[in-house]
Simulated scan of single mutants.
Amino acid sequence: MGAKRKNSGDGDGSSNGDGKEVKKAKKKESMAESLLPSMIKNKEKRSEVHAKLKHQKKLEKRKKAKAREAAEKRALDLGEEPPPKSIPRTIENTREFDETICMPDDEELFAGNDADEFAPVLNQELTPKILITTCRFNSTRGPAFISDLLSVIPNSVYYKRGTYDLKKIVEYAKNKDFSFVIVVHTNRREPDALLMIGLPNGPTAHFKVSNLVLRKDIKNHGNPTSHNPELIMNNFTTRLGHRIGRLFQSLFPQDPNFRGRRVVTFHNQRDFIFFRHHRYIFETKESKQVSSKGKNAKTDKDEGSSEPKVIARLQECGPRFTLKLRSLQHGTFDSKGGEFEWVHKPEMDTSRRRFFL
């Protein structure tokens, strides 16, 4: 009897031991699942956990997509409205609240438009006339960039800088009835900044230039004509952005010639202003119309008829570059005693979701 009890006790002990091992294994698995890959010191184990998490996320995403498609199909079959599509969270639609965002019913804003420095050009009382020059130390790509700008901006002329001070150039441009002075600054043989000086009373905007691609470097580029271009201004939503948008608009005549099919775009995204210059082309192509007899009726000659179809496409003319506003100054250029409306400072970049334009 004693031996039997001992055997039965051994059996109970082994079963209890197996249960403890199972519990330990489950505990380890749950701990491994709760651990982040960055918390694991072992490289192989870390990569293994990361791959497992990535695979699980992929499976969950696929499962949600299938469920969404099934719900949409079910709703269409029943004649009901499909469930609304979820809007992905982006930096743009989760931007920080800004009190200076312009509203369509802002009477103060529209009243200020009639009294600002750009009103004569935008109200078509004055035709813009642009003087383009360089910094004192020019580079090889500077003149090529200026040549492209001259083909983009109507009524623009290039004057060689020489040794003249910028204030003297501004006074000369005022006397010659220019509406803007644009200075192309270069650094290490590459244009890296634009200074736009409004005349006669300012303002002066300083932009950083990046990602410059000249016309000759764009594959299958088009050659622009001398027609006045259309303007597209995107996402200039704040008071500052509205002012910068009007500054860009005042560089161009406000009577676009649609026969030229030229489009100049200033697209603001996350305070980066993307410049593009296109022309749109209309092409006539023949599209085959299949008859109602179906695809199997291949023997009939009259099974399909070709009809002309007009297709519109874009051809980039260049140049292509990105602008970043550094400062906006009251009046014409004054590096010492000038009063600034807005200046970008490093301490402003506290959040990725904070935008100023």
Rank of each mutant, 00 (worst) to 15 (best):
D177A: 12
G112Q: 15
S305M: 10
K58H: 13
N235H: 11
S34T: 05
K324G: 09
F178L: 06
T127K: 09
H242G: 13
N220R: 10
E117Q: 13
H277C: 00
R353A: 01
G11P: 02
S335E: 10
I311M: 08
Q315M: 05
P253F: 07
V264S: 01
K54I: 11
A144G: 02
K208R: 14
K168H: 08
N16Q: 11
F180S: 10
N16R: 14
S151M: 14
K41Y: 13
R354S: 04
K27H: 13
V343L: 03
V170I: 15
N228C: 07
L251A: 00
I197L: 07
V343F: 01
K216C: 07
R320Q: 13
V264K: 03
L122E: 05
T140C: 04
F145Q: 03
P224G: 06
D77L: 13
F356G: 01
A65T: 14
F321R: 03
E316D: 12
S38K: 14
K27F: 15
D334G: 05
T225I: 02
T350K: 08
A3E: 14
G112M: 13
R326Q: 15
E21Y: 05
L328I: 04
G79M: 03
Q254R: 07
K61C: 08
S8L: 15
G331F: 07
V263S: 02
Q315R: 14
P256I: 01
H242A: 13
E283M: 02
R68N: 08
S147I: 05
S351A: 06
G294K: 06
I40M: 06
T134C: 05
V290T: 13
F118M: 10
A312T: 15
I169C: 02
S226H: 10
G11L: 15
K174C: 12
W342N: 04
H267E: 06
L328G: 04
I232H: 12
N223A: 11
S287V: 14
V184F: 09
V209T: 11
D148L: 07
I132H: 04
R74D: 14
R246D: 02
I146E: 04
A115P: 00
S47H: 11
L76Y: 06
P319H: 07
H278E: 04
N296M: 09
Y158T: 04
M348Y: 02
E341P: 00
G19Q: 06
L166F: 14
P143I: 07
D217I: 04
D334S: 10
A193K: 14
F236D: 03
F258C: 03
